[in-house]
Amino acid sequence: MNSLFTPLSWSDSGLILTGVWNTIIISVVAIVVGTVLGLIVGFLRAESNKAVNVLFGSVLDVLRSVPLIIQLILFSTFVGAMGNPLAPFVAGSIVLSLYTMAFMSEVFRSGFESVSPSMQIAARSLGMTKWQTIYHIRLPIGLRAVFPSWLGVSLSVIKDSALVSVIGYMELLRTSEQLISRTQQPLEILIGVGIFYFIISYPLSHYGRYVERKMAI
């Protein structure tokens, strides 16, 4: 149908792979940073009193309820206006990580809170210190309890990473858009992209269910 456009060819695989790689790398960064920060914030929230929690909670609420695409645009516009524009990868990583952290912190908070006070008293009565109790009892039990939710958040971060394309990050969706405008073959390309997300997510969620069953306690 299209002598005007160059059809998809093997020489495009480099571009596609760059997109795949960039999607993976920004997802991994956001999941790792979001998990670490989420653990800390989730623990502080489970431990702290009401006042601190209300303060923390409202910041997290904002992060969770403002659409990610708006956060991305706002952040990169704001930073750009300050005179030091960040590379799309850096800006995207920061926003996506904080967004992930907001969800992870709730996941971990409920994990920490799922370990009953009487379980902790039992550990302390054996002579364990507060930190030993956290490390050997609260953390492992709490993390097991929320593993499925953690995986769920992680999977949606992989999908949400597509939105970082709006600030110019060359992840999979954006490279596909470029290819589409050149080749005019949106169907093939978007189906390919869809299959990629499926190939990543499906085994992970299956693996998650497997681990969940193994850890069932």
């Binding site: 009487s118 379980m119 009565s125 054996l126 002579g127 492992p140 039990i141 306690i217």
Partner: peptide, 20 residues
């Protein structure tokens, strides 16, 4: 107090086994 508790074994109504 952590040291002191080593001398005092305690068992509760709920057994609180460490499930993991």
């Amino acid at each position: 107090k952590d040291k002191l508790r080593q001398k005092l074994g305690m068992v509760f109504q709920q057994w609180n086994s460490f499930p993991h």
